[in-house]
Amino acid sequence: MMAVLTTLLLTGGLIFFLGGAVGILRFPDFYARLHPAGKLDTMGLLLTLGAMALYTAAGGRLGDWLTAIKILLIVALVFITSPTATHAIVDAGVRAGLSPWMREDEGTEHDLAA
């Protein structure tokens, strides 16, 4: 039962990671690429680390529970810091004067995907 749940969570997390990787490669510009980098990686990490915490806690002893709680603390830290880091990078892009990609820009020098 616990193995099935862990496998499901791990698979879900890997799907999110895959989506994030594809998004970083395929999206047209700086801001759009940070969108999958910030959101999907955070979600993928939440699911995979949650699976690890579940798998560890299934041991049932006190030490296993302590390890699971430590993993959950890592999840909490990443949940705060990862979106903040993405925000800081986007903010730096705006302050440096990089304009976002628009539909009518297609084919011009702003089209970074070309």
């Binding site: 830290l77 705060i80 810091t81 903040t84 925000h87 800081a88 903010d91 302050r95």
Partner: peptide, 16 residues
């Protein structure tokens, strides 16, 4: 540049 989000996240995480 003053940025509320980065400041708050820093204050939240730094003690830990």
């Amino acid at each position: 540049p003053y940025d509320l989000i980065i400041r708050c996240a820093g204050r939240l995480v730094l003690p830990f």
